Amino acid sequence: MIIAHYSHRLPANYDTGLIRTRAKERGPLWNTIPELYFKAFLLRESGRYGAIANSYSSLYLWRQDDAFRDFLVSGRYKVVTDAFGRADIQTRFALDARKGHAHHARFVVREDLAIPLDADLSAVFASEVERNREVAEQSTTVATAVGVDTQNWTFTRIVLLEHEPAASEAGTSYEVLHLAKPLLDTLPFANAA
Results as ranks from 00 to 15, higher is better:
Ile3Lys: 04
Asp70Asn: 10
Tyr77Cys: 05
Glu130Lys: 14
His8Tyr: 11
Ser168Asn: 08
Asp82Lys: 12
Ile52Ser: 15
Thr81His: 03
Pro34Tyr: 07
Phe93Cys: 06
Asp185His: 13
Phe125Ala: 13
Pro34Gln: 08
Leu42Cys: 07
Lys78Glu: 14
Ser168Ala: 13
Arg157His: 11
His101Trp: 06
Ala190Trp: 11
Phe125Met: 14
Arg98Asp: 06
His5Tyr: 15
Trp153Tyr: 13
Arg86Asp: 11
Ala102Leu: 04
Pro116Glu: 06
His104Lys: 12
Ser58His: 14
Phe155Ser: 01
Asn54Cys: 08
Trp62Arg: 01
Ala193Thr: 13
Ser122Asn: 13
Val124Met: 02
Arg20Cys: 05
Arg44Cys: 03
Asp88Thr: 14
Ala102Gln: 03
Glu130Phe: 09
Leu61Met: 07
Pro28Ile: 01
Asp66Thr: 15
Ser57Gly: 15
Leu29Gly: 04
Asp66Cys: 08
Ala94Trp: 05
Ala123Thr: 13
Pro188Trp: 03
Gln151Glu: 13
Ile19Ser: 04
Glu35Trp: 02
Arg92Glu: 13
Thr172Phe: 02
Ala126Tyr: 01
Thr186Ser: 15
Ala97Gly: 08
Gly100Met: 08
Phe125Val: 15
Tyr56Asn: 01
Asp88Met: 12
Pro34Asn: 07
Phe41Tyr: 15
Ala167Ile: 12
Tyr60Phe: 13
Ala145Leu: 08
Ile33Pro: 02
Leu42Val: 00
Ala53Asn: 10
Glu137Val: 03
Glu35Pro: 00
Leu187Gln: 00
Ser173Ala: 15
Phe38Ile: 05
Leu59Pro: 00
Leu184Lys: 06
Phe107Val: 07
Gly17Pro: 05
Thr172Val: 14
Ile33Ser: 09
Pro165Val: 05
Phe107Ser: 07
Lys39Val: 13
Ile33His: 10
Ala23Gly: 05
Val142Lys: 01
Ser55Glu: 11
Ser74Tyr: 06
Ile52Met: 14
Ala53Ser: 15
Thr156Leu: 06
Thr16Cys: 14
Ala145Val: 03
His5Gly: 08
Leu160Pro: 01
Ala67Glu: 04
Glu164Asn: 01
Phe38Lys: 03
Thr141Tyr: 00
Leu160Cys: 03
Asn132Pro: 00
Pro182Asp: 01
Leu29Lys: 11
Gln151Pro: 00
Phe125Glu: 15
Ile158Met: 07
Glu164Pro: 00
Arg69Gln: 11
Tyr56His: 09
Arg92Thr: 08
Glu45Ala: 00
Val146Trp: 06
Val109Asp: 03
Ala67Cys: 08
Thr186Asn: 10
Ala87Met: 02
Phe155Gln: 04
Tyr56Ser: 07
Phe93His: 10
Arg63His: 09
Val159Cys: 11
Ile3Thr: 08
Arg76Ser: 15
His103Trp: 07
His163Glu: 15
Pro28Gly: 04
Tyr49Asn: 15
Pro116Trp: 04
Val129Gly: 04
Asp88Leu: 13
Met1His: 10
Leu117Gly: 11
Leu29Ser: 07
Thr21Ser: 12
Glu164Met: 07
Arg44Trp: 06
Asp149Asn: 09
Val80Glu: 13
Arg20Ala: 07
Gly147Trp: 07
Glu164Trp: 00
Gln138Cys: 06
Val124Ala: 04
Arg9Lys: 12
Met1Gln: 09
Glu35Tyr: 10
Thr91Arg: 14
Thr154Ala: 09
Phe71Val: 07
